[in-house]
């Protein structure tokens, strides 16, 4: 007789096994960041690739989200005569939530997929094996620089996203909603607290780690040629997004409590 719970149990065990494997991989990746040898050239290259070259996508996302947020808050606020709260809620929403989460999601697509595809291709073409035979630990040469670069550059990107997002709201508020520019900016700065920014930056650092570690994990364990690399890339994006959203809630709840 077929046990109807067996497939559910198998799926749960599979998920737990995957979580365990990823945790061990992430732990080894983090440890590799702190133990020599350090490949600073690789770190600089990855910082440029992950951080600098992500600026356009982050900037565009932030400006449109800030603008849309201002419009929505204006419409919602008008229902109980609270239109003047637009700058306050825009800056709060951008710095605490939308800045880090949207930057994380955009980079999950751009960076996690890229890392998984690159390392996955290296795996299936034996380049990672070759690196081992050349007395170079792939965790230190390939993974640690990517993880460190993503963890350090995502907070910087979020800082930029915060500023651009607020400016997106400012542009809409001043040009379409008849707000006074100086008053808008003063309200924004008066309302903003350092802990709002810090919360966003902490989230960004954690998301950066997740994005790079997930991409590296999926790529490092890919097998089966082009199909395997494609699967690793998809899994890296999906895994990063799910993990970012889950961890975002946990960090927010921790800070709120």
């Amino acid at each position: 007789m077929i046990n109807p719970f067996a497939p559910v149990g198998r799926a749960v065990l599979g998920i737990l096994r995957e979580i365990g494997r990823f945790s061990l991989f992430a732990g080894r990746s983090a440890a590799s960041v702190f133990s020599p040898p350090f490949f600073m050239g690789q770190f600089a290259r990855q910082s440029l690739q992950i951080g600098y070259f992500s600026l356009p996508v982050i900037g565009l996302t932030a400006v449109f989200i800030g603008a849309a947020l201002a419009l929505n808050i204006y419409v919602g606020g008008a229902r109980f005569n609270a239109e003047s709260f637009v700058p306050n809620i825009v800056v709060l929403g951008i710095t605490r939530e939308l800045g880090p989460v949207l930057a994380g999601l955009m980079l999950a697509g751009r960076v996690s997929a890229g890392v998984a595809a690159e390392i996955g291709t290296m795996r299936v073409t034996e380049q990672i094996d070759a690196m081992n035979t050349l007395s170079t630990d792939p965790f230190k040469f390939l993974i640690a620089p990517r993880v460190l670069a993503a963890t350090l550059t995502l907070p910087l990107l979020v800082l930029v996203a915060d500023i651009i997002g607020v400016m997106g709201g400012y542009l809409v508020a001043v040009n379409s909603l008849d707000f006074n520019g100086a008053t808008y900016l003063r309200n924004t700065l008066d309302f903003l607290e350092s802990q709002d920014v810090i919360l966003g930056l902490v989230k960004a650092a954690v998301f950066g780690f997740i994005i790079a570690a997930m991409g590296a994990y999926q790529g490092y364990n890919s097998q089966g040629g082009a199909l395997g690399v494609g699967r690793a890339t998809t899994n890296a994006v999906v895994g990063s997004i799910v993990l970012i959203l889950a961890v975002n809630y946990l960090i927010t709840a921790f800070f709120v409590e």
Binding site: M122, T125, E126, Q127, D129, A130, M131, N132, T133, L134, S135
Partner: peptide, 14 residues
């Protein structure tokens, strides 16, 4: 590993 050298089937060049 420093004692080893390896030529891979597909070259495995970076």
């Amino acid at each position: 590993m420093k004692k080893f050298g390896m030529l891979f089937q597909g070259g495995a060049l970076f």
